[in-house]
């Protein structure tokens, strides 16, 4: 590479010689990798059509989309849809619900770490393997079935949960229909599904901890808990930070497919989030432009979040995504 750039710098003195040489070699390298270009072609076309064309289509958020005129032909309306959304009755409710769910989920971020630390201390390989396999299982159950299980278990009349509550003398609770329960059900069913799966990365990081550190700590008289605290936790901290940032990247996108399944007219007060609103106002009511504007607002906040948290992490802990 150096030999290619060097003549370029001296362009002022010998342009006639430098430029053709550079061009020729570059062209040869391009020609040599044409087969590699063919190999990336399907992906390039795919990403263009299904990722970049929709990005281009985002402009309908600033237009008044009319199907017969198409994306290109519809009229510009500027920030009208955004203004309408910000001043709408739903705005604060949607924001509160979306942020509330996200924060609640973030607070439970340490749970897989705790489970991983605990699994890592198990000496019996069969028990460890059994515990891992079993706790991974819910990850493979679809959201439809998970919500279906909640509906069945939590039914006020015939659900097992309310039968249990009845045993200790508590009146049955219509969990799925009460706004106050929605957040807990959503977040804790998520914990049930992803707790075990979330340990995989941490277990790998823990397996990489130098055993000499443990032996040294032991010689110094450290107990098991002290070794976890002073050896294992510092060792996985970089992994924790990276995953934490990544979690922020999807801060606003809180498993919307599950929210949609769980939401009903009775719990709408807490289950209405920005993305279900986009779905309902856009695809069910056909207000494409308005819904696209709301969706755009959502992704802009996401980007700001991940950039901001990454910046913060770099300053505090020297670990960051970029």
């Amino acid at each position: 590479m150096n030999s290619v750039i060097a003549p370029g710098r001296t362009v002022g003195t010998q342009p006639a010689q430098a430029l053709p040489r550079r061009g020729g070699r570059f062209r040869r390298r391009v020609r040599n990798s044409w087969q590699l270009w063919i190999l990336v072609l399907p992906a390039v076309v795919f990403f263009f059509v299904f990722k970049y064309v929709p990005m281009y289509g985002v402009q309908i958020a600033f237009k008044d989309f009319i199907a017969s005129k198409g994306i290109w032909g519809s009229e510009w309306v500027g920030l009208e849809h955004f203004q309408r959304f910000f001043s709408s009755f739903y705005f604060w409710r949607l924001l509160r619900n979306t942020l509330g769910l996200s924060l609640y989920q973030l607070l439970l971020f340490p749970l897989p770490i705790i489970l991983a630390l605990s699994l890592n201390e198990v000496k019996n390989r069969f028990f460890k393997r059994f515990a891992q396999t079993l706790t991974y299982a819910p990850h493979f159950v679809s959201v439809v079935v998970v919500v279906g299980m909640m509906v069945a278990f939590l039914d006020p009349r015939i659900g097992i949960a309310n039968h249990f509550l009845g045993l200790i003398g508590i009146d049955s609770i219509p969990f799925m229909q009460e706004a106050g329960w929605f957040r807990h059900l959503f977040v804790w069913s998520g914990v049930w599904q992803s707790l075990g799966w979330g340990t995989i990365i941490y277990l790998a990081a823990l397996a990489g901890v130098n055993p000499e550190l443990h032996q040294a700590a032991e010689v110094d008289g450290a107990t098991r808990l002290q070794r976890i605290r002073h050896v294992n936790i510092p060792a996985i901290l970089p992994t924790v930070v990276i995953l934490f940032i990544l979690d922020f990247g999807s801060f606003m996108s809180v498993g919307f497919e599950k929210v949609l399944l769980m939401s009903n007219s009775l719990n709408a007060e807490t289950s209405d989030i920005i993305q279900t609103f986009v779905y309902k106002s856009g695809l069910l009511q056909g207000q494409y432009s308005y819904a696209a504007a709301v969706g755009l607002f959502d992704s802009v906040i996401n980007i700001l979040m991940i950039v901001g948290v990454n910046h913060l992490a770099r300053r505090i802990s020297d670990t960051s995504l970029w």
Binding site: W37, K51, S299
Partner: peptide, 29 residues
């Protein structure tokens, strides 16, 4: 590494991780 355009294509793909058109434009497409 000898693939000319490697960086370009990699960024072209990575960018879609950061930003997406969203539900409505994808549906219309």
């Amino acid at each position: 590494t000898q693939f000319v355009g490697r960086k370009l294509v990699t960024w072209y793909i990575l960018f879609t991780m950061l930003f997406s058109g969203g539900l409505i434009p994808t549906y219309l497409l």
